[in-house]
Each structure stands twice: as C-alpha cells, then as structure tokens.
Design a binder for these strands. Structure first.
Length: 920
RNA sequence: GGGCAGUUAGCUCAGCUGGUUAGAGCACCUGCCUUACACGCAGGGGGUCACUGGUUCAAAUCCAGUACUGCCCACCA
C-alpha cells in the first residue's frame, strides 16, 4: 500500500501524537537514535522471516485440505469480510483467533480446512461505487445497469484481492485454492436453489407491506439492518376539526408531515372521552380531506391525547389499524425521501423541509396547539446512517417462524454452544420473537431475484433461468424482477455453499458441518442465527457446534474502531513495524475473554518484546551447543536430571495441561497468558539463569542442556498457533541439532499432557531456592550493593533439609545471587557489619563492610517486622476462635498453625537481628 | 420499557467450585549495556476488591438490594 492510501484510511494519525518514524527531531537526537538502532541489531527481525516462511507454507500446500483423506476433520469458514472494508484490527483479531484454532487442530492431527472468502456486501459496495460516480459527475442510472454492475464487479474483485493479501500477511492458514466469493457462480446457484426451494414450500412470499426504506440508498432494508439512534425530538399537538361541529380532536405526533397521508383517526374503544366521536369524521387540516374516526384497542389511552392519527402507508402500526378498518393507504413519499403528488402543495420538498413548512402553516392557521420536547429513537440505515422511513411497498419476504424452531432447539439442547455462554440468551430472545425477513433490495449489485413476470397475463414464475415462455399464456414477453437479494441471503448459506452446495461434493461430504464459528457479537442476528436456520433447512443439521464470540476492538478512549470514524489501525501498518507474530500475540493478550480490548499502537510493543524474548532464548540455548551435538526431543529426558530440571519439566507439563484446557474452552487469552508467563518467567528468568554456570567459561551441565532443548522445542510447538513465524524459524534453526528434526511445526506434534514430573516436594524445594535468591537480591538492591560486585553469603539454617538442599544446589544459584563465598550451617554466626534477611527455615547474612547504612538496614528490618506482626496477630486471633477450630476443615487449621509457627520464628529472628543493630 | 455484561493498583485486566500476605502486563521510582535479549536485567512504591445489607467460623469470591458504566432488544403515536 502506498503512503497516500494509508493516509486516506487513517486521516487522524496525528491524534495519536506519534510522528512518523524519525522524521522529526534535531540531528543530535537522530544520531543518538542511530546509535540505538545499531545496538538493536541483535533483535529478532520479522521482516527477514515472515514472507519467506509464508511462501514456503504455500508452496508446500500445508493448508490445503484433503478431500479424499481419512483423518478426522476440523473445518472453519471465515466470516467473509466485506469487500468495502480494508481489514482493520477487528478483523485482525477475528482471523488471528481462527488461525490459532486452525493451527492448534492441524498440529493435533486433524485434517484441518479453513475456507476463506469475501462478501460482495450489496448495499455497502453499491454506495461506495455510486459515490465514485458522483465524483466523476455521473450516476448509475446514466451508466445503465449492465455497465454499473460490471464496474462494481471490477472494483469488488480488486478490493477482495487486497483483503485476502492482508490475511496472508497476518499468517492465516487458509485453504487459498478454495477461496470463494459470495457473488461467484457457485454461490449464485446456491442462492437460486434456496430461493426456489423456499418459494415452493411457501416460505417465501411477495407482499405489499410497510418496510424500512432508506431514502439515501433508495432501497428497502430488513429490520436487522436498521440501527436505532436516540434523538431529541418534539411532539406536535395538532387540532383535527370535526366535520359539521364546532369542536376538534387533538392529536399528538412526532412526524407531523405524515399527516398528509392520514386516512383516519383512532381512539381506544374503552375511552369514555371519545366514545361519542367514533363513526364521525374529521377534516384533515391543510389538505381538507374528510377522514373517519375509528375505535381500535391498539390505542393507548394514557399516551398523548389518546387520539392517534392513522397513516397506513407510513407506519407499521397504522398499517394494521388501517387494514382492520379498511382505511385507504396513501403514499406521500418518493424513493428519495421527497414528497410526491399526494402531498399537494408540498410536492417535491424533502420530508424535513416539508415538516417545517407544514408546521408553520398549522401555526398560522391556529391548528397547532403546542409543541413538547420528546425523546425518540430514530431508525437509521446501517450503511449510510441516514434516517429510514417506514414505507409501503411490494417486497419479497421469508417466513421465519418455522425455520427458527430447530435453531432454538439446538441451543436449548446444547448442540449449539455460545462462548461465552451468555450470548445464547441474546440469540434465543431474538429467535423466539423472530419476524419475517424482507429480502428484496432495490439495488443493482447483488444476486438478482430469480422471478419472472409475464408481461401479458402477469403470471409469476420462479426459476433459476429465464423460462422460454409464460407457463400460463405462453407469451414470450417475460420480465425478470428488477430487484436483487439482501446480501445476507447469500451469506446465510456460506457454511455449505463454500463447499460447493447444491452440488454433492466430496468436500461437502467430508468437511460439513464445520466445527466453530468465530465472530463479534454484532452479527449474531444478521448472520449467525440465519446460518443456523439455513443449516437445518437445507443440510438437515447445524452448520457448526460452537460459536466463539469475541470482543470488539476499541481505541484508547473506548470508542469502537472503524473506518468511518477514522480511528482504525491497519494490521499491515503494525506488521510492517513489528511483524505479524507481534500483531497476533498482542491482540490475543489484549483481548480478555468475552470482553472488548482497548488497543493503541503501543499495545503491540508487548507482543513484539515477547517474540524477541523467545527468539533470544533460543539463541542462547543454541549458542551453547557444539556443531556435532545431537538431541532427541521426541521424549522428555529422564536420566541425569537435577532438581531444577525436574522443576521446569513439571512446569512444562502443567502448562501443556492448562493450555489444552483453555483452548478447549475457547479461552485463548488465558492460554496465551499462560504461555507468556511460562516462557518468560519460568523458562527464561529462572531455568536458563539457573543452568548458566557460575562463570561464562564453564560449560552447561549436559543433562540440563538436554532439558533446555527439550523444553524449548515444546515451547515453540505450544506457541506455534499463536506466533507461527518465529516459532517456525526457531524450529528450522534447532533442527540441525535434532535427530528427530521436523521440517515444519504445521503438523505438530502437539505436546502431550502428562503427570510424569508432578512432585509437590520438588515444587517446595524449588520454592526455597527461589526464596533465598529473592531475599539476597532484595537485600543487595536495597542496600545499594553495586550489581557487579559479588559478596559473601552466610546462611544460618534452622531446617536441616533446607541446609542440605542449599548445599547441594549452591552451584546453580551462586551466579543468580551474586555469591562470592558461601557459608551454610546451623551454627553460623552473624558477621559483624552485615545486612540480614529471614526466610522460612533460615537466616541470611550478607557482610557489607563499608557499604551498610545502619539506619537504612534498621528501617528495612522494621518494615518487614511490621508486616509479619500484623499477619501474626490476624492468625493468632483466628486460631483462638473456638468456632473456627470447630467448623473449619482440619487441613485449613493445620496449615494456619504451621504458618503461625513459621512466622513466629521469623519474627524472633528479625527481633534478634534488630537488637544487634542497636549496638552500632 | 425489557434484557445482557461490567464495576479489583494510575491504565487494561487475572483471581474457576468461599480459607492467598489480593496477582499480571503497561505506566511510575531506583540501580544496572551482568554468561541470549536495553524489544533487556534486578529491586521498589501503589489497592479499606463500587456501595449497603445478609449467609458463614471465614467473603474480592455466595445471596439480595442500591448506584454508576457499556452493549443489545422494543411498533408508545
């Protein structure tokens, strides 16, 4: 993408306060920056890796599903991105999630297929192309239908290619050879097939109904394509004079201009105030039309004046009242929202302009009683955000109730599961109150409705292809319905149409139903629910069993990221800067399960750092190998293991289990955090540091080296679904040292969960070593010991086992604790000028001749003592409570007792050490 | 009007079936280019877990209510 385009998409880059790289600042700053850049040369460089690896994956067809295979299958269909939308971070998240699931299952041995594609996005695309035409000084009507569609198609295909390219950069492991487009021929066949089938079952009908009309897009919309926006509105009170009487009825309305289409007034039959007027007529102000007063129980006596003006052609409720009382339907609007001839002198005015003039006229005539403030919610078009008008017109509808039944059952029986589960309530609520679906659109871009009308006898024929002649009168003069179908009418078939339905393909046979659908909550109704219905209706079963609902990406202020708001970030921008792995892991780490992530550009630094950390760890491990060394990572090493080896192996086991569990529950954020912490803290900060010899010249113990390689090999496999590139790169580098080298991580194997190394005692032992190291580090830092300076360490032991343990493992933590000489024993005396720390079972002394600040040391010890005393007090109280001792489980009591003893001991030691300080 | 989420450190969030000294990342402060990594290392400060009641020996965790925030649905003219 060129700079210019990027600028177009992100007009508000400035807002983030981040100047373009290195373009600002003076020379000095720049030269400093360059020095920094040079130092950073050791950092992992995704640019040198990602494109190369992705190309290899494609060449080797790793992502191509086998239609003749025998392994268990795992399929996902992509929520096809709209061709109008260059992918933003929301898509980045959505597709990362899917790719993680795909790679995870591919590694576990599934024949995994991820079907990619794009959505032709009827209204959205047409709106974009029409805007282009306006800029060029023409219109679609001038261009003509065929040319317009041709042009739109070209534009859509171009965008589609760009979008699919974005997905590739993200690293998505889609089966690209099977890419589909919701408007390609195959899908077109599916759409026709479905329309005809539903029509023949009387589930599709044509009707003259009130629909949502967008005067800007000039098409009808389904109820679900209307977004309601709260607005400060007004309530106008208008007097309707009774015919032949000197009295009037007062009517309240929020849309006064619709009175031009009024064909009656309605009151509640039980309303005593108005009973006497029912059956009489009033004179409609301005147009002076005589209209009847009817009684209808729809009218709420409490609201407004209790009298409702009835406009059957411009309000769904009025439409029904009108039908019940056989009132005339008068349409006062043109397609573009201006008033038509029925509006008399207001003809040609925009509806809002007409409202102003009409209200003014009512006022001068004294027919406007008053105007109240009134908040109302206005329906707006989900594509152009202009107010929609209820509008009477002839449209095609799908009867939904019967289709919804099995889709409701599926959730109730637990066959279809939402993650998080609470979304199933939203789904059920909608399904149980489902209304018919208006599927015809007055657009040109889309699947044309497969209906033909005989120009001579008016016969309606539903057919995939144009019939030769009328089935009734044999006339050859046939005309196809002008309208196209709602975009979602092709999207709802996606889970099976991508596999070739209505053809009986091998792919369909093998990969349908798919396993999981991942999407944001906004399209549960528009898409997810309808796919479920279509699955049952046409395939006889669910299209997927699990629906993974993830959060919507928001910016730093919590605003939803979108192209139109200009706060979007192109994933490509992030990938160019930090790499796809950084993008992916950052998104997953930032997205709490079931909640919306708040993301800024620096969110991605965390992921980048992690990717680099992993890469550096791999460098360290391999650096310490000789060229001719070979390892087998097929199984965990079992011989020649020391405590720290067993500990990391047991932590690895736990991590595998935890990750399996989290992924199985669709908690990718939790899984990623687990891996992040295991890799960084356990493996890098503790294990690697512990196996580092006391001095750089000494070699690493061979048994530990084997473990390090084994754990690293497992880490890259565990992380591969999340960060496929860097892990694959490390796999390649590591391969030369392995006898069980693998060409790719794509097919695993996924680490197996086991309990081989689980050992509570070992965990406790390791924890004591950590405690010693932490205590020493803390003392040294607070006493301002220069980090480079090693110091002696005296450990006075009260727990013999601990003494043995520290004795045995001292060579491993000597370097971590910066130890010069180490003295361990139960009779160790505190060296004269030394800082001290107390841990369970031991006292630690660090001689600090010339370094120690007695006041500071005293403060440090006192602070610690304070904390311990507080704890002790709480514990003592608890253990003195008879109810606690009576009711609490034994192990809880025992644990607290042991803790009390331990703390008491530590308090005593601290007191002693403090006392000794007094002498100085 | 109805429904669904959420309210824990300055920010974004963990804390599952009640017993932890309430955690992490980022930000902040201090010291460090130490045998892979300054995209780093080590240390540190910071929270009466929204509020009010209740259950319990014990509540951030369970129950009820209140307040606030966000989202969704709805045909009150």
């Amino acid at each position: 993408m060129t700079k210019d385009t990027a600028g177009d998409i992100f007009p508000s880059l400035e807002k983030y306060g981040q100047p373009e790289n290195g373009t600002k600042g003076n020379d000095l700053e720049n030269s400093e920056k360059n020095m920094e850049e040079n130092k950073k040369s050791k950092a992992y460089d995704p640019k040198a890796v990602e494109d190369r690896l992705y190309q290899t994956w494609l060449e080797k067809k790793y992502f191509h599903g086998d239609e003749n295979g025998t392994r268990p299958t795992y399929a996902i269909v992509i929520p096809p991105p709209n061709v109008t939308d260059i992918l933003h971070l929301g898509h980045g998240l959505n597709n990362t999630i899917q790719d993680i699931l795909m790679r995870f299952h591919r590694m576990r041995g599934f024949d995994a297929v991820w079907m990619p594609g794009a959505d032709h996005a009827g209204i959205a695309t047409q709106v974009v192309v029409e805007k282009q035409l306006v800029k060029e000084g023409t219109t679609r009507r001038e261009l003509g239908r065929d040319k317009f569609v041709e042009r739109t198609r070209a534009w859509a295909f171009r965008n589609k290619e760009y979008i699919l390219g974005q997905l590739k950069r993200i690293g998505c492991s889609c089966d690209w050879e099977r890419t589909r487009f919701t408007i390609d021929d195959g899908l077109s066949n599916a759409v026709k097939e479905v329309f005809i089938a539903l029509y023949n079952k009387d589930l599709i009908y044509r009707g003259n109904r009130i629909v949502n009309w967008c005067p800007s897009c000039q098409t009808s919309l389904s109820d679900d394509e209307v977004e309601h926006v709260d607005q400060d509105g007004k309530l106008w009170y208008i007097k309707y004079k009774l015919k032949g009487e000197d009295t009037y009825l007062m009517v309240a309305t929020t849309r006064p201009e619709t009175m031009l289409g009024d064909t009656g007034l309605a009151v509640n039959p039980k309303d005593k105030r108005y009973k006497k007027f029912v059956g009489k007529t009033v004179i409609l102000p301005i147009l002076e039309r005589e209209i009847p007063i009817v009684a209808d129980s729809y009218v709420d006596m409490e609201f407004g004046t209790g009298v409702v003006k009835v406009t059957p052609a411009h309000d769904p409720n009025d439409f029904e009242i009108g039908q019940r009382h056989e009132l005339e339907q008068i349409n006062i609007l043109n397609n573009d929202g201006t008033l038509n001839a029925n509006a008399g002198k207001f003809k040609g005015l925009d509806r809002y302009e007409a409202r102003k003039k009409l209200v003014a006229e009512l006022e001068t005539k004294g027919q406007l009683e008053k105007v109240d403030k009134y908040d109302l919610s206005v329906g707006t078009c989900y594509r152009c955000h202009n107010a929609v008008e209820p509008y009477l017109s002839e449209q095609w509808f799908v009867r939904m109730q019967a289709l919804a039944k099995p889709a409701v059952e599926a959730v109730k029986k637990g066959d279809l599961r939402f993650h998080p589960d609470y979304w199933s309530k939203t789904y059920l609520h909608w399904m149980e109150n489902i209304r018919d679906w208006c599927i015809s659109r007055q657009l040109w871009w889309g699947h044309r409705i497969p209906v033909y009308y005989c120009e001579d006898c008016g016969e309606v024929m539903v057919a995939a292809d144009k019939p030769a002649k009328c089935v009734k009168c044999e006339s050859e003069s046939l005309r196809q319905d002008e309208d196209v179908l709602d975009t979602w009418f092709s999207s709802w078939l996606w889970p099976f149409s991508v596999f070739g339905w209505p053809e009986k393909t091998k792919m369909l046979e093998r990969f349908y139903p798919t396993k999981v659908l991942a999407t944001a909550p906004e399209i549960i109704f528009l898409w997810v629910a309808r796919m479920v219905m279509a699955g049952y209706e046409f395939m006889g079963g669910l299209p997927f069993n699990d629906v993974y609902i993830h959060g919507i990406v928001r910016d730093a202020s919590g605003t939803k990221m979108s192209k139109s708001l200009g706060n979007g970030i192109d994933p490509i921008e992030i990938i160019d800067k930090h790499g796809a792995d950084a993008l992916r892991i950052s998104l997953v780490l930032a997205t709490p399960d079931g909640q919306d992530p708040w993301i800024t550009r620096n969110t991605f630094e965390g992921g980048r750092n992690f990717v680099n950390k992993l890469y550096q760890a791999s460098r360290f491990v391999m650096m310490r190998l000789k060229d001719d060394q070979r390892f087998d990572t097929g199984q965990a090493p079992e011989d020649d293991l020391i405590l720290v080896d067993r500990w990391i192996l047991s932590r690895l086991e736990q991590t595998v289990k935890e990750v399996d569990k989290c992924v199985g529950e669709f908690r990718l954020n939790a899984a990623a955090k687990e891996l992040y912490s295991f890799t960084w803290n356990d493996f890098c900060s503790w294990y690697i540091e512990l196996i580092k010899p006391d001095s750089p010249e000494e070699p690493i113990r061979e048994g530990s080296m084997k473990v390090a390689i084994y754990v690293l090999d497992n880490i890259i496999r565990l992380l591969h679904p999340f960060i496929p590139f860097v892990t694959e790169e490390i796999n390649g580098n590591l391969g030369q040292y392995l006898t069980n080298r693998r060409e790719t991580l794509t097919f695993g194997p996924w680490p197996e969960a086991s309990d081989k190394f689980a050992d509570e005692k070992l965990d406790a032992s390791f924890a004591s070593i950590q405690a010693v190291v932490n205590a020493v580090r803390s003392v040294r830092a607070e006493m301002n010991v220069p980090p480079g300076k090693r110091s002696d360490l005296h450990i006075r032991i009260t727990d013999k086992k601990l003494g043995k343990l520290l004795e045995e493992y001292q060579i491993y933590f000597r370097s971590l604790a910066k130890i010069n000489e180490l003295h361990i024993g139960d009779k160790i005396k505190k060296p004269g000028l030394s800082a001290s720390a107390v841990i369970s079972g031991a006292e630690i002394f660090i001689p600090l001749e010339g370094l120690i600040d007695v006041e500071q040391e005293r403060g440090r010890l006192q602070k610690e003592l304070g904390g311990l005393k507080e704890q002790l007090e709480r514990l003592s109280k608890k253990l003195a409570n008879a109810d606690f001792l009576k009711n609490a489980p034994k192990d809880v009591i025992e644990k607290d007792r042991a803790r009390k003893v331990d703390i008491e001991e530590r308090v005593e030691k601290l007191n002693n050490n403090l006392e000794q300080l007094m002498g100085w």
